[in-house]
């Protein structure tokens, strides 16, 4: 039994964000391949990610979903022995070049991890620290930005009286929302989410999922998820990854209804019907 299904009953359903404009391309991936220590982990990925939409990346474990996500903000650089080939264009600019400014790239492309990872600092500092580093000089400006970010993830009312308490005292769901706020406070264009609700309890998971849904239109979101029901609920587009010959590949991509209702690829059909993967 899937954890998400139990929460659908109690979740307010009307909270889908504004519609995305599918006309404009935000990220264009061409012939992307990734090798770890010479072994191919991902190969030949061509994918267009439309601006302002939620694109879900689904597939069985080990099919390169997270690897793909890590290419979009060059987190692959932190993995020893990892080599990326092909091109990833963010608003037309190829970010796989070695002269790409990683600091500004990662400001534009935020990331949320599977396990909430707030820093061992106060709630306030978690949000203001990066702002200060990125040159927001005035303390009042930073505090205001932090407040807005906390409001946008629905955490302000819960923590406004204890902003200087350690962030690690928050519950798992609150921590993940704080991480979301921490990414949003930098006003990114793209948010990458790596199974953002899979380590949370069903209720907290539902809250985070709704939040993500509300970000549609304002940000371009790419979400990796194991949870097909979740992908179906929140995504506009779906990319299905599969392992072939030991390497991850993109086997099908399209709108949610297209992939779920009339899959073109045989493997997709068996995967979404729960027969494989």
């Amino acid at each position: 039994m899937n954890a998400q299904n139990t929460t659908e009953v109690i979740r307010p359903w009307a909270q889908r964000g504004p519609c995305c404009e599918t006309s404009e391309t935000c990220i264009e991936v061409q012939n992307l391949s990734v090798h770890y220590h010479g072994k191919q982990a991902l190969g030949g990925v061509d994918l267009t990610i439309p601006r302002g939409c939620i694109t879900a990346v689904v597939g069985p474990s080990g099919c390169g979903k997270s690897t793909f996500l890590n290419c979009l903000n060059r987190m692959t650089d932190m993995i020893p022995g990892c080599r990326v080939a092909g091109s990833v264009r963010l608003m037309g600019q190829d970010i796989t070049q070695s002269d790409t400014d990683l600091i500004s790239l990662r400001r534009r492309v935020g990331m949320i991890f599977q396990k909430p990872n707030p820093f061992p600092l106060s709630i306030r500092k978690n949000l203001t620290f990066a702002l200060k580093h990125h040159g927001m000089k005035r303390r009042s400006d930073r505090d205001e930005a932090a407040k807005n970010a906390l409001r946008s993830v629905g955490l302000w009312e819960e923590v406004k009286d204890r902003l200087d308490a350690p962030a690690l005292e928050l519950s798992g769901g609150q921590q993940q929302r704080l991480c979301l706020a921490r990414a949003l406070v930098l006003k990114p264009q793209v948010l990458l989410l790596d199974e953002p609700s899979s380590s949370l309890d069903p209720v907290a998971s539902g809250v985070v999922e709704d939040l993500i849904s509300q970000l549609r239109g304002r940000y371009t979101l790419v979400i990796v998820t194991h949870n097909l029901a979740q992908a179906r609920r929140i995504a506009d587009h779906v990319a299905v990854f599969w392992t072939r010959n030991g390497s991850g590949q993109l086997i099908e991509t399209g709108s949610v209804s297209q992939v779920f209702d009339s899959p073109r690829h045989e493997l997709t059909a068996t995967y979404i019907s729960g027969l494989r993967g």
């Binding site: 903000n73 987190m75 932190m78 990683l102 600091i103 500004s104 790239l105 990662r106 400001r107 935020g110 990331m111 991890f113 990872n117 707030p118 820093f119 990066a130 580093h133 990125h134 991480c179 921490r182 990414a183 930098l186």
Partner: peptide, 9 residues
């Protein structure tokens, strides 16, 4: 990883 993802030096 979290710090790197925020674009911190």
């Amino acid at each position: 990883r979290g710090a790197a993802a925020l674009g911190l030096s």
